[in-house]
Design a protein around this nucleic acid. Sequence first.
DNA 1: CAAAATTACTAAACGGTGTTTATTTTTAGA
DNA 2: TCTAAAAATAAACACCGTTTAGTAATTTTG
Lengths: 212, 212
Amino acid sequence: MGVKERKERDKVEMRDKILQSAQQLFLAKGLDQTSIRNIAEAIEYSPATIYLYFKDKNEIIHALHLDGFRLLVRHFEPLVKFTDPFERLIEMGNAYIKFATTNPGVYELLFVRTEPMEHVSNCLDEEWKEGDRAFDVLFQTVTQCQQSGHFKGLDTQNLSMMIWSFIHGLCSLGISNHIAHVKEARDKKLVVDAVMASTYQTFQTVMERLKA
Amino acid sequence: MGVKERKERDKVEMRDKILQSAQQLFLAKGLDQTSIRNIAEAIEYSPATIYLYFKDKNEIIHALHLDGFRLLVRHFEPLVKFTDPFERLIEMGNAYIKFATTNPGVYELLFVRTEPMEHVSNCLDEEWKEGDRAFDVLFQTVTQCQQSGHFKGLDTQNLSMMIWSFIHGLCSLGISNHIAHVKEARDKKLVVDAVMASTYQTFQTVMERLKA
DNA sequence: CAAAATTACTAAACGGTGTTTATTTTTAGA
DNA sequence: TCTAAAAATAAACACCGTTTAGTAATTTTG
């Protein structure tokens, strides 16, 4: 009687199919241009069928959100090779910026859009594990920097939040095209990426000075 | 024959009426819940009439965008009373945070949403004056800090961008509810405002250390 | 094996969106 | 008063997320 088992397999298969198409559309055309109807057309089912596998659109968005976080965490994995915590901190920033600029749509989904946050609020706290893990990578690195004698007298949590705020601000301004309209960016005809790079360079210098 | 003049007055009056209603709805219910149809109903005209005064919805959004910038600049005006440039810099951050947290919808419109940016791209650069003015307030203050001997060896433009990135990152994470999901924020049951305040406090300490 | 019951699916509708077109109403000038 | 221009709109178009009621396929049961 493997019927029930096969049906369950079919069910998750369909779920994956929906999610896969949703992701494809999302990466190609952005979140706002990814509609339930588009997804349905892509998988050659009626729109109503989607609702047999997902409660609503936000549940789909949330699933993509989780995938995005996994992608981010994967960007952080190579950082273990940097034994010096300060160096790792700097490289973490570079990895974060690279993730954001090469996957702007995903970045927006993770850290700019509020839709996934609203969904998370209605879930068990359990669901936010991925987010915690990503922040923890930063927190642990800052902790190790302080154990090495850097950043004395600064609260680890606050300093981590400060660093995240800066990097996130830089990335979101870059992605949302706000940097392109700042005077100097126009005058000097620097592209957004260059402004981001030189700004991060200055941040790096500032952190260096805080070491002592 | 002041009929032509009166008609022109009527035209701008109608434009203002539309904009006023749009702003009211926008502040009350957010951008996404402010539809052309809502605005039309509020001014007791048909939706199609709106299009006799505005090319499309983005043109309305852009007008609100300009108003928002003026509001931000107004938040910066009291800062002239701080004669010490470093003190002014710190207070500027407080003013910015206050603006963002008390007008989250407006803040989102100015610095998170991309719709107004897209519209700005299709305009003369002239249109972005307000944005430049706001950034210039920061840039000039950083310049004066450096003239007072602070932040030696750091590029003014990059340092200004760094500061803006941090503050913007902090505000946007706060507004978008992402801070609320960071572990420590939950564990210690700190509200978002408290996390923002203590993070900014740490930033202030960091900037103090850079003075020398 | 046929009938009943369950499951999978979808057509159609509801109420919403931004925007356009054709039409009607209002206004102004001769 | 009649006509031409201007202003406003009704209705439609093409979308959107979502729900409901009903159909088609499949599985279980007698």
